[in-house]
Design a protein around this nucleic acid. Sequence first.
DNA 1: ATTTAAAAATAAACACCGTTTATTAATTTT
DNA 2: AAAATTAATAAACGGTGTTTATTTTTAAAT
Lengths: 212, 212
Amino acid sequence: MGVKERKERGKVEMRDKILRSAHHLFLEKGFEQVSIRNIAEAIEYSPATIYLYFKDKNEIVHALHQDGFRLLVEHFQPLVRFTDPFERLVEMGKAYIKFATTNAGMYELLFMRSEPMEHVTDCLDEEWKEGDRAFDVLLQTVKQCQTLGHFKGLDSQNFSMMIWSFIHGLCALGISKHIIHVKEARDNRLAVDAVMHTTYQTFHTALERLKS
Amino acid sequence: MGVKERKERGKVEMRDKILRSAHHLFLEKGFEQVSIRNIAEAIEYSPATIYLYFKDKNEIVHALHQDGFRLLVEHFQPLVRFTDPFERLVEMGKAYIKFATTNAGMYELLFMRSEPMEHVTDCLDEEWKEGDRAFDVLLQTVKQCQTLGHFKGLDSQNFSMMIWSFIHGLCALGISKHIIHVKEARDNRLAVDAVMHTTYQTFHTALERLKS
DNA sequence: ATTTAAAAATAAACACCGTTTATTAATTTT
DNA sequence: AAAATTAATAAACGGTGTTTATTTTTAAAT
């Protein structure tokens, strides 16, 4: 006995090997620049072998997707020390931006591509557990703010969606290299990070005014 | 004489033919799904012919980029009838969203891809005329709002950037199919358009409160 | 220990992609 | 009518994701 078990272990080890290699290549070369053949070469197996462990490229991408969300949630962990929900909300935005700028390749994969989302649809999962969980962190914080009397008269879900849209838009424009090319950034010789930072500060100011 | 002129005309006609075909295919199949070979087939020429009129695919993409901005600015034209700048600002957001949802492929090309932006960098253009012009429409409107006493104490450029980030984020999340998969959208059986609409309404409400 | 059955890995192919080069077809100039 | 120029293309190169048939490795049964 134990043979079957070892085989099983071998199977998940191979899956992990592929995923870790893919993860590494993604961070290094960015989405769309990573091919099955690259991954195969990195792990020193033939391309066809990959297909023994993953149905197609989308499945690999989806698995990395889940890894990415774990990483994002990790970035949110330190936020528990902020007892005031509003303060936590503000810090959450900063953490999100930090995650996006320091893991641009991964952020692109998580939030800027439709392929992984389409894979969710294909699986008939319909559920998008990781996304829901991350969104819920935001939603609960907004709700806590509202129990303290902030953001009165605003629907918590819509307001959370609004906040996410803003932060995502800011990160996405930064990553897709649109910010560098707007006149203001060029004129003031501001780095992308600086523009994102001051824009977020303005958003913070706006949030403060919406508190009451 | 006139031969050279006819030739010239023929040359720009062919360029136009290629661009119109590419434009059509982009709207139909979305970025990344359109190949040089597709375009060639559509205009009934060989793929190699394309390269007699365009240096590479990026040059085609860049040309379409400019077309796209013209289309976007056209969507903004009807806004002149709104004399109140705040009202115009709100309508501008709606027009932007309408443009994005009805021309998803084009929107993706304009604002969600780094390739065309990288081409701008390569050309040493540095300037991104189309983008600046479009952003300026927003910026001027914000400034006009401020001369009426709205949005006091907020830097016009940062605030414009904030608004753009929000709207772009909303459109981008819609197009990249992330919105369909958030729990709330699924539970309430809301279409993407509906989520975008109610989120924008919430933003509108927030803007109203920031007026004074 | 040897043969047989099962599993794992791969080589080779298919149909795409962007792009380049050498060649052919059409047109203009001489 | 011949030469020179221009326009168009066929074919190829190196890349992509993926599939199929084949070979190698491993485990089980004799």
